[in-house]
């Protein structure tokens, strides 16, 4: 079955994996909105949505249905193409990131080994950075195409925030890369399985990375991009209906993906802590599924922390945000990087 010298089985296998992972991230993002409302309610001694279905579990569907049936408004003098391109780009970039995350070891089906990772590229981390840096365009194009000064200013505010925090994020990661000795995600996970989780060696790096992830996802305390009450709702002010839904939804997908990245880079990915699962002697398929479940548990924990932080900490002011990013986190991550390098050199000698 070789046509155009492509391995069609390989293509099919990857297609199935892509479909599964994308629908998984969509469903999880959907239920993160539900979890957000529930956890927010619990933290405030309320009950949260409990009318749609048992315990309100159909609430995300109701929300989505509402957004679909809302009137779609496109500003008359804005560029229609760019106005639609903005939310689409936000969604695409949010979904693209999941391609390099290792979701588990490999499945053995039909005599083929099927790694639970879409693309194990040489430059896994950099790929994530590349896609994240493109996420700015969804916001900027949407804000500009709205043909509204408030949207434009908010889009620029959001974009400069994301660019600023990308730097500190990258610098914090370099220390991890030095430990792992590779940019490949699977190698980084394997290194943690062999030598212990990176968060043990890089607690400061993890904290910096986590703060930057909050800022990248436009989450509180850094949600200036969409401050409804005091900053005029941000870049999606002119958006309505499902296009607004796309922006909001992309934020939740970003949250899911950055939780996955954090779990992979610092918390051992699909590694089961404290045990040597290879010595159990169970089938590799089952082991892969257990690893996947463990990774998911770590991701859900991070999602909970994201939500927990949102309903605890108030919003930063913009100058505080910039101060923290440029004068706080970047020097700190540089120091962390140099320290790691020095310690590694000493230990190697």
């Amino acid at each position: 079955m070789h046509l155009l010298s492509i391995d069609w089985w390989f293509l099919l296998e990857k297609l199935v994996l892509i479909m599964v992972i994308i629908s998984l991230s969509l469903v999880i993002a959907m239920y993160t909105t539900y979890a957000e409302r529930k956890v927010a309610a619990w933290l405030q001694d309320r009950r949260g949505p409990n009318r749609a279905g048992p315990w309100g579990i159909l609430q995300p569907l109701a929300d989505g249905g509402k957004l679909f049936f809302k009137e779609e408004i496109i500003p008359l003098v804005s560029s229609k193409f760019l106005f639609i391109l903005g939310p689409s780009l936000a969604m695409i970039t949010a979904l693209l990131t999941s391609a390099v995350i290792p979701w588990g070891t490999s499945l053995h089906l039909f005599g083929r080994e099927m790694p639970l990772q879409i693309a194990d590229v040489n430059i896994g981390i950099l790929y994530i950075f590349g896609v994240v840096s493109l996420g700015v365009y969804g916001i900027m194009i949407g804000g500009w195409a709205s043909n509204n000064k408030f949207s434009l200013l908010a889009a620029i505010r959001a974009a400069s925030q994301m660019i600023s925090y990308e730097l500190a994020m990258g610098l914090a990661l370099i220390a991890v890369l030095m430990l792992a000795g590779s940019l490949q995600m699977s190698v980084i996970v394997q290194n943690q399985i062999d030598h212990g989780w990176h968060v043990i060696y890089q607690p400061l790096g993890f904290v910096i990375f986590f703060i930057c992830a909050l800022a990248e996802c436009n989450r509180t305390p850094f949600d200036l991009a969409e401050a409804e009450n005091e900053l005029n709702f941000g870049y999606h002010q002119e958006y309505s209906s499902m296009k607004l839904g796309f922006y909001l939804f992309a934020e939740y997908i970003n949250m899911f993906i950055s939780s996955a990245v954090m779990a992979t880079l610092f918390f051992g990915g699909y590694d089961i802590p404290f045990v040597n699962e290879a010595s159990w002697g169970i089938s590799p398929n089952l082991l892969a599924l257990i690893g996947f479940a463990v990774l998911m548990a770590k991701i859900f924990f991070f999602l909970f922390v994201f939500i927990w932080i949102r309903w605890t900490i108030p919003r930063f002011r913009y100058d505080q945000l910039m101060n923290l990013g440029w004068k706080g986190l970047i020097p700190l991550s540089l120091a962390n990087m140099v320290l790691t390098a020095v310690v590694m050199l000493i230990l190697k000698k």
């Binding site: 950099l126 790929y127 950075f129 840096s133 365009y137 500009w144 889009a155 620029i156």
Partner: peptide, 21 residues
């Protein structure tokens, strides 16, 4: 990927900043 990160992800955003403003 560096071409995308540096040029598409950072420099072009600054271009866009200036032109949009």
């Amino acid at each position: 990927i560096v071409n995308i990160i540096v040029y598409a992800g950072a420099i072009m955003v600054l271009f866009l900043f200036v032109i949009m403003l």
